[in-house]
């Protein structure tokens, strides 16, 4: 498998790759078409004369600006909460002993094996009880809770592998519990923070079901995904605006992924190798 790849391999991969991403290229091109061009040019992804006003119209007229802000708020808050909660729990479960620890570990592991019923209804009731139904907080909290088992497991594995001598040395120097975690261990967990953060960001940005349920009665809280879905139902003919909305939804997460992809890919690869 170490022979030099023939030119045909590259041709195959390039043509295949472009065809693979054709739906995205077509969406990008069509977001700059006029309605006439949209039908005239059909499956040709290139616009004749780029019409940038589609974006302004989608952003303001079709509320995609509001949806973008909602999605961004939810994603940033969910990532911060998930990282904080799972890093703290993962560290404590990996490196400290306390009565009841076994019980906590069982509770975490059990959620993987229990059959999940239709849990969205009781979750909805709790949010109603907390008076959070009319804010983005309901979505943020539910999204954060959804990722904690996965994140806690990843941080537990990561902290368990760090040399104990570092912690012991810090304790000898008089560092207390908090200083050991915040000043020594957390800064060492950079790659895992990036991995869990990126997984959480992608799942929060792309989440559909949870924001769909929590915004059924509150259109102004919609995320981009839910906004797109609602847009088809309400203005089913504004195709070019819908394409602009798609680009607004897809571009940021693709950009973040391209910058941080090695953390994502390494995280996935680590998951199957274990």
């Amino acid at each position: 498998m170490t022979r030099r790849a023939p030119v045909m391999t590259h041709v195959f991969l390039l043509v295949g790759g472009v065809a693979w991403l054709y739906p995205f290229l077509w969406t990008l091109g069509s977001s700059l078409k006029s309605t006439d061009e949209f039908f005239g040019r059909g499956l040709d992804p290139l616009p004749g004369t780029p019409l940038w006003s589609n974006y302004a119209q989608a952003w303001q007229g079709a509320s995609f600006g509001q949806y973008f802000l909602n999605t961004l708020t939810i994603t940033v808050a969910t990532v911060l909460i998930t990282l904080l909660v799972t890093a703290m729990a993962g560290y404590t479960l990996a490196r400290t002993e306390f009565p009841g620890k076994g019980l906590v570990l069982v509770a975490v592991a059990a959620t993987v094996f229990l059959p999940h019923g239709y849990t969205i209804i009781p979750i909805f009731d709790i949010m109603d009880g907390l008076g959070l139904l009319n804010s983005l907080w309901s979505i943020i909290i539910v999204q954060s809770a959804g990722g904690i088992v996965f994140g806690t497991f990843l941080f537990m594995g990561y902290f368990r592998a760090i040399d104990r001598a570092l912690e012991d040395a810090a304790r000898v120097d008089g560092a207390n519990f908090h200083q050991v975690f915040w000043r020594i261990m957390l800064p060492l967990a950079g790659p895992m923070l990036a991995t869990v953060g990126l997984f959480t960001a992608i799942s929060a940005w792309n989440s559909f079901f949870i924001p769909l349920v929590f915004t059924l009665a509150r259109p102004e809280l919609r995320t981009l995904g839910v906004g797109m879905y609602a847009f088809i139902g309400e203005n089913s003919t504004d195709w070019t605006l819908l394409c602009a909305g798609s680009v607004i939804t897809l571009a940021p997460i693709i950009a973040i992924f391209l910058v941080l992809q090695r953390f994502f890919v390494n995280g996935l690869a680590g998951a199957v190798k274990q």
């Binding site: 909660v85 509770a107 209804i121 909290i141 539910v142 809770a145 904690i148 088992v149």
Partner: peptide, 19 residues
């Protein structure tokens, strides 16, 4: 561990039982 446990109990384990 508390914040993780609260989220787990309130939004994962309790809803499974309630449903």
């Amino acid at each position: 561990v508390l914040p993780m446990l609260v989220l787990l109990l309130a939004f994962v384990i309790y809803p499974i039982i309630a449903s």
